[in-house]
Design a protein around this nucleic acid. Structure first.
Lengths: 329, 329
DNA sequence: CTGAAAGCGCTAACAC
DNA sequence: GTGTTAGCGCTTTCAG
């Protein structure tokens, strides 16, 4: 099938291209009879408007860029689902960019985002540094960041207050007299790690205690598991908090194989909830973070920014829910 | 910063826009001195070529559409990573579309793919039906499908021969006298399910036996787990083969909780390998499918098609490797 | 080696 | 109501 343009349709329907344009865009001022003639021509020729040409003419592409960390999509999968579902409803397209730690030059991504003239960008977490954000700002690119409380000119955010979540959790344990609490580092997400530690510190401070047990682990599951298998030989905790399932699993597996029984001798909580939490044994207690909603809300938010709709809240906080399973008493 | 166009650059550098265009595109025929002047102007103004305008002029967008099933990105995550890494190297952008079973109208996606004038589309598996493919064909859209042996005019594929994998596995067990083998259905991927069954049938036929044990399960992990917990009360098998980790885990958990010991009384193998296979206990034996490569090769393949490069093989088969862990003896 | 001008497909005033 | 026309930003002959 030959590429059919608005001209062919116009000729076929015996109208001008302006009229065709009107019916495509649902303008009301076209006579019923004319409209039908045009619609038939469109149908007959199999015409589909060229979004690129529309983009040029309108100076907007109705596509937004999504930037996420690579690696486990388990982790961001639900966010993506939420965002894409919302995008589909809102008639936006999504350009996906992933950042592979140590491989991708983030500046390349920023460059390609600018060239592609997307209407806005959504990015997950702290993956974009200050200067990259400011580059995007220079090009007046509306942004929403997921997972990080931040806002400003052309920047909004959607997030869950992990600090608060961890603080509450620690608070509960401290009140029960369990103060041997450790937090496992998330090297792939230092920002989240920091929030967790801050939350713990806050809870400890309330009881006039110091939070000190921060377990630094290697990058991968395999190396972390090996590391922890040594670590737990000489260190025991009443509660271990990890950010992701893989880190929590590394703890669980290492501890159990050293004969530490979970949850009796040690409890484990992971912050991010994935479907695997309920599939492993013992089932992993975690916070149910509304990841799908994080994506969906981010998408809605950016379209509001694009349409200059009034935005009540530029930093949208979504709530979590602690979901006890088998790794806690 | 105001939107800067090629005109501004031209004026700044005191040349015509044609010359600027030449230096952007690395044409050799520009005098060194002129080139430098233009490059300085570009730098000074922060000019970034408008990919949309280029797309219009060149009739190509250097972006390709990727269509994948939603749900678990664990499953397709590595494919996406491979594809995106390759895309970045090849200077292509990726437009992501997901299909949510029972929600998304696939025709909408096809429609939006055509409108967006991407240069080609890569899709995972059997998610696009015959008629959608033929629609895309009408618009002369180059396609590569991942996970499914198929080729034709403007269509190539990259896949792993799951039928063969399962056949070999069954063959091995049958040779050891273990013929009580069952396959768990994958309702989200009927095509893969079919391949698995075909593989088993082939192996059984060689021994003059019939393969009959196909376990139909509900849609989700939760319901499957419940179903299997009933099923294994009255049914035992020597080997159970599942497509994905979630299905294999449902089997493992249900069986173990009924007191069936794994791998002693029942062995479990899952076809698709994810990082969770090694994280659960007992560790899940599986086939290491080259999912990252599947994505990367698909991307390379489609660019070859776009550049009219010679294509040695229109149906590229990638190999698998059986990885025994703790759920097999 | 560089510039002028047509054209990519569509939208949006502005006429009629 | 419908048509005419001037862009949107860039590439690419074709002249010079």
């Amino acid at each position: 099938m030959k590429r059919v343009t608005i001209y062919e349709v116009a000729r076929e329907a015996n109208v001008s291209l302006a009229t065709v344009s009107r019916v495509i865009n649902g303008a009301e001022i076209v006579r019923q009879e004319t409209r039908e003639r045009v619609e038939q021509a469109i149908e007959k020729l199999g015409y589909k408007p060229n979004a690129i040409a529309q983009g040029l003419a309108l100076q907007k592409t109705t596509t937004i860029a999504l930037v996420i960390p690579e690696a486990s999509f388990t982790y961001t999968g639900q966010v993506i689902n939420g965002l894409l579902d919302a995008a589909r409803i809102l008639k936006y397209n999504i350009m996906l960019h992933t950042i592979t730690e140590g491989i991708t030059d983030v500046n390349d991504i920023v460059e390609s985002i600018i060239k592609s003239r997307v209407d806005g960008v959504v990015f997950y977490n702290d993956k974009l540094q200050e200067d990259q954000i400011s580059t995007l700002k220079q090009y007046q690119m509306p942004m929403v960041v997921i997972g990080n409380r931040i806002s400003g000119d052309n920047v909004c955010s959607v997030f869950v207050d992990i600090e608060k979540a961890v603080c509450e959790l620690c608070d509960k344990y401290l009140s029960e007299g369990k103060s041997d609490i450790a937090i496992v580092q998330d090297r792939k997400n230092l920002f989240a790690s920091q929030q967790m530690v801050d939350g713990a510190k806050k809870a400890f401070a309330r009881k006039n205690q110091d939070f000190t047990k921060f377990i630094e682990i290697p990058q991968t599951y395999r190396t972390s598991y090996a590391y922890l298998k040594e670590y737990f030989k000489t260190n025991r905790h009443q509660l271990v908090i990890a950010n992701r399932d893989s880190q929590a699993l590394a703890c669980m597996n290492a501890a159990m194989e050293l004969g530490i029984s979970i949850p009796d001798q040690m409890e484990v909580v992971c912050v991010i909830n994935t479907k695997y939490n309920a599939m492993v044994r013992p089932q992993l207690s975690s916070f149910a973070l509304p990841s799908y909603d994080l994506g969906a809300v981010a998408m809605r938010l950016i379209t509001k920014m694009l349409n200059n709709e009034p935005i009540e809240e530029r930093e949208i906080e979504l709530s979590y829910l602690f979901t006890p399973r088998q790794t806690t008493k």
